[in-house]
Every structure is written in C-alpha cells, then in structure tokens.
Amino acid sequence: MPGLTFERRLMFSYCVDPDTLGTFRWFSCYLTTGVHWSFYLSFLKVLLLLAVTAPVALSFGFAGAMAARSHFPPLSWLGKGYIAIVRGVPDIAFFLFFVIALDQGFEWIRHKVLCPDWSEPIRQGNDFLVCQSAKLPLGTAPEWVHETYGFILAVITFSIVFGAFAANVLFGGMRAVPHAQLETAEAYGMTRRETFWRILVPQMWVYALPGLSNLWMVLIKATPLLFLLGIEDIVYWARELGGTKTSRFTEYPHGDWRMWYFLFLLIFYLGMTRVSEIGLEKLMRRLSHGQATSGGELLRKETTA
C-alpha cells in the first residue's frame, strides 16, 4: 500500500487522531494528507504539460504548414502527409502508438551508437532487446528520472499530434489571407521570402485564431489522456484516492468516493474552459484591430461612432 509508506505530514495539530473529529475538521485533515498533496501536485503537471506543449506544437505546426506550402514537391508532400495522417485516425491511437514507438526509437539509436559490436537481433520474438547501457532511462537511474522521462515522452507525443492539427489550421490561415495583399507585395518588388515573413505571417493570425483557439480547447480536453501514457496524473490520483479505504490501511476510512473525485475533475475542466473562452475572446478582439475582416470593421465602427 503506497498510503502506508507516505510520511505523515500534519497540516493541523488536531489531526493526530482523526476518529474523534467532527465532519468539518475531519475533512480538513483528510484533504491535507500526503497523498492528497500528490493529487494537487498532479494538477500542476497538467498545467505544465499545457504550457510546454502549446508553444512546441505551434512551432511544429508552423514548420508543417511552411513545408506544405513549399514549391519543392517532396517537402510539400511531407508537410501535407503530416497534416493528413491525423485525419481519420483517433488521436488516442496516436498517443498509444507514439509513446512506445518513440521509446523504442530512442533506445534503438542509443543502441546503435553505444554498442556497435552487438550482434544479436533487437527484436527477438516478442521482445525488444537493446544492450544494458542503451536502456532509457538506465536501470540504475532514480525514480524521478523515470518519471521525468515518461513525462518528456508524453510532451513529445502531444506535440507531434497537436502539431499536425496546428499545421492544418495554420495552412488554412495562410491561404485565407487575401491574395491581393500578396500581389501588392510582389508589385513592390518583395521576394517570396520577404512576402512570406512581412505580409503573410502578420496577417494570417486573425484567420487562424478561431481554429487555434478551438485547438487550445481540444488540447485542454486531451490532457486526461496523460493517464493512458502511464503518467501519475489527476485521473490516476482520482482513481487511487477515491477508491474504498478500510480502516486497516488508513486513518481516514471511507466508501467508494471516486464519483466525487471525478466530479471535481469535471468542474476543474469546466473552469479551465470558461477561463480560456474569456481570454481568447479578448485576444480575438485585439487581433481583429485594423484588419480587413467583419470583426475588424465592427471594432472600427465602435471607435468612430
């Protein structure tokens, strides 16, 4: 039982003997046990995942969209293939696939570099065998290295999948910029590169933003899938903590409370959604400023009227 090994940190002095407490005090003790702090910490994990994944996925998407626009056919196929592959296949399948595939890929590369004189095949029947020193993380590594490695794999996986989504949105945004703008740039003698960076990129965001904000919402709602990647995230802890506890293993025995824990997660996500909605609305207003769109026109009328 992990609950037993946890160090007993008492938040309040009256928590020494929980059996004697009234309901309110009992809960104030129960909700501040060591395992509960791990639960609260896992919320930070979710926020960290969002904070890291969003910019990385956006840059993956930008690279993908640029590749898809390229005039060099193999590069353009690569970009379009990257965008198309996520279409039609459930994203959860990608998550499950990439986590194993990336792990094996890294180990395979390290195996090739670190143990060049290894002669046995790597795939033996149902096993994937690399030499000891190529193992990731090393068998001797402490626990936190394992956890961090798992988390990094998860971040890369999320970034690849959401990068493809973002590439699709940005590609659409680039095509939505009025063609006359690009022609004007050409008429002024700008090169293709200059047109792209100075005219296209600054203007594409307002067209891409509805898609990107949708993507952000989807990313928020995809974070519980961390659980499937073997991370001890909020879903993991909600299941652990909510399960029936008898007085043999804990000082806070209770029945099956998983329903309440998941209700709490539900409310957490609804709150995240609401906050994002308000924030994105503000951003959209800002980006629409001075743009030749109906939103921009509306803003102009508001200020002149």
Partner: peptide, 25 residues
Amino acid sequence: IFLFRGSPLFIQFFFAYFFFLSLKK
C-alpha cells in the same frame, strides 16, 4: 451544451461509470 462541450469526454466516461456504479449499489 456548456457542460458536455466544456469537459473532456474521457472524464465524462469516468464520472458516469462511477455514478452508475453507486446508483447500482
């Protein structure tokens, strides 16, 4: 609409399952 679009389907499945479980009890 806000309730079901604003929260992850994955969590909805979990919540519903445990809700049904306690209903069954």
